[in-house]
Design a protein around this nucleic acid. Structure first.
Lengths: 412, 412
DNA sequence: GCTATTTGTTCAGCGATTGAATTATTTGCC
DNA sequence: GGCAAATAATTCAATCGCTGAACAAATAGC
């Protein structure tokens, strides 16, 4: 991923157009106001002739559309602004979690055009049945998308667990799933999306990874490299390096929940001692604050905790401080290892960020050698609780923006 | 780095040839026996006509040369094998360390064609003087390279400390350097190498990073992603992801020495407590084994320790076991975070690997969730103590192999 | 209404790849 | 020894896509 590496395949004649399609479309996507063809030419270094030809392809493929010209001072023929199409390909994002199912549709511009949240305790539900419900919701989403002139070009499913390259869910402890062959179970149903060359029909990945992707593509765009930590029952991290998600050799990166914060500390269900999860996991924080954890929905407990902290409840404040310190120990090590300058607290941590950030920053200041030369930012996620589903859907459209040739029917 | 990301610049006509030059040359470099043009055509997907044209460019530019045909069974015109040229561009690798200076020259094929090690205690020497000595050694290396038909295309300097993007050595604690502007100090001397477009004249980086690169490009080629840990007085890690060194946002990745192994443990000079360095640093191991650390050269102490362990000395064995356990705690967290499947113990750890690996593996087995599905390999580095200098030199030639257009005088 | 200015398109030219035909060189068989 | 089959490498017309310059389109200012 960004590092200078040799190209994967042969550069044939058409590769040139493929690259320039991606280049121009990427510029249109990144611009903050609709650029003209002339703007794109100067920005990319291509000639206006080439840009025109490329844009013609993109217009024909419904990837961009012409917008009202951006008002400009001075003389000259008015420009025609180019924006990402709001009719055309879109991504389907799916999420299965402990107490809800989410389906959403995101268009090329990153707008959420459809969203459904289905609250239900999924733990007693068999995986196949949960997926069947999801297919049902996806069908409605697809119909709604079609009404809006959108074509679903691919789907991505977020799961709170370890996922295989093939989409096999090896283990989702809080959901009670083990070795669930998701693509196989879904293949029995109607296809979720249309088939588009270059866009896999279904990608399954960890929710923390997709949540990080959602953050990466949020507006305004985040930094190119950051650590996104989702604090739920477990603690997962999504690592974004140079604008790309780092998935590790087998896609199992980001397991930060069992970082040894207190090596001789509390026993953890993983078999170790003093794992981060035991000190900064949602259940741990809630318990430390003296709240009964009988209240089932995790977000309710989190909201309650935030209320108490807001009101100055000393137990809640102490619990949050301790959790933040534990989190800070782990985060500091990650920052030392990867030299990141931004850490995003997402998921259940986002509403607690006002109280978690200070101790995290304190640990970073104390433990990160290089913090003296350049500061590390710790901030809450800008996305809500559906970050993972939105990030999943965005990963689909981003793939099209990064490689539009597939969608346009070129060799890909 | 590697990840699917949009191309940086405009794809013009010549980019096609640039890409294919890199593609073909990369194949020649990666092949284990000299491939013919026909082999390259089938391997890359290009036509034989194109491959011939590309190879002609590479031959003219002295990047490859024709070798004896690989013996083949069956009829047909015999192939002409292509190998990386042993006359042509080469990389100059430099290293400043606490008790030695090293200069080496590595050719395109990765062969070390010249090597000088100058032993001296560099701590009392002013940075400018140390660099002047290095320039002297480099001049001899350049003359020797010229005698062998090699042209030095660029230089890379390994330093045991934090280095800036601009080559400023912010801090090299064991060397006593602070804010040393290396490129500036060297600019006063004769140029180390020739100027080649696309190849920076001098790159300065951390020794751990270059040592990891050396491991990456060693024969047989290592895995595409791994963690390389250099155990010296300090402990540095080089992170290789998808075949590329991961340098972090500012190039300061890999600071693993201050990983909190025992949060309430021994105070560390960094201000923290229980840092890995205090338990698995060379001085710590030597002290724990009951050896006097008055013996200055670090490699002597390490060798002595290995001898004692070999002889079954219980103090030495216990010290190594404890160090390995501490190292394992840190390594397990890194593996959990990045999902790597290979860890290489280099530098001072390499000769101690027989005793360090078992406890490291034990900690990984206990702490890495995914280790159950796929094992993690822990092995010593195959390179000797000059790994950093060789890795530095290799980084120069690798850049040429990855982007030969610059060397060939194309726009690149 | 005219000029200056900027946008976008058209078109000949050119570089690079392609695919088929051609040449080169060896093995195997009669 | 000579011929056919097989494999390697080169040659060449065709094609694709980018370039650069000329040209058409559309607006502001005088």
């Amino acid at each position: 991923m960004s590092p200078t590496h040799a190209p994967a395949g042969a550069a044939r004649q058409g590769s040139l157009r493929e690259l320039n399609l991606a280049l121009v479309l990427g510029r249109i996507a990144a611009a903050d106001r609709p650029p003209s063809r002339a703007d794109l030419a100067t920005a990319t270094g291509l000639t206006r002739a080439t840009v025109s030809a490329v844009v013609e392809d993109l217009l024909a493929g419904q990837l961009v559309s012409e917008a009202d010209p951006a008002p400009r001072a001075g003389a000259g023929r008015p420009a025609r602004g180019l924006v990402l199409a709001d009719q055309g390909p879109a991504g389907l994002g799916l999420e299965v979690n402990v107490d809800y199912l989410t389906v959403c549709v995101v268009d090329l511009a990153g707008q959420v055009r459809h969203r459904t949240v289905h609250r239900a305790d999924l733990r007693p539900v068999a995986p196949a049945d949960a997926l069947a419900r999801l297919v049902d919701l996806a069908g409605q989403a697809r119909a709604d998308a079609a009404r809006q002139g959108l074509t679903l070009a691919g789907a991505a499913l977020a799961v709170p667990g370890l996922v295989d390259d093939a989409g096999l869910v090896r283990l989702a402890p809080n959901l009670g799933w083990r070795d669930v062959p998701v693509p196989e179970l879904l293949s029995g149903h109607q296809a979720l999306t249309d088939q588009v060359p270059g866009v896999p029909a279904l990608v399954v990945d960890n929710e923390a990874n997709f949540a990080a992707l959602g953050e990466l593509h949020s507006r305004p765009p985040g930094p190119a490299s950051f650590l996104h930590i989702s604090g739920e029952v477990g603690i997962g991290a999504g690592i974004v390096l140079d604008g790309a998600l780092f998935r590790g050799v087998r896609g199992w990166s980001g397991e930060i929940g069992h970082f040894p914060v207190h090596p001789q500390g509390r026993p953890c269900r993983c078999g170790g001692h003093g794992c981060l999860e035991q000190y900064a996991g949602q259940e741990a924080i809630v318990a430390a604050a003296g709240l009964l954890r009988a209240e089932l929905p995790a977000d309710t407990a989190t909201a309650r905790l935030a209320e108490l902290a807001e009101a100055g409840d000393p137990d809640a404040l102490r619990a949050l401080h301790d959790a933040g310190t534990a989190l800070g120990v782990a985060v500091a090590s990650v920052v030392n290892l990867l030299d990141l300058d931004t850490v995003v607290l997402g998921g259940g941590y986002a509403p607690l960020a006002p109280w978690l950030c200070p101790p995290v920053l304190a640990e970073i200041a104390a433990r990160v050698l290089t913090a003296a030369w350049s500061p590390v930012t710790v901030r809450p996620s800008t996305l809500g609780p559906e970050a993972a589903a939105v990030g999943a859907a965005e990963s689909v459209v981003r793939r099209i923006v990064a490689r539009p040739a597939g969608w346009l029917g070129r060799s890909g």
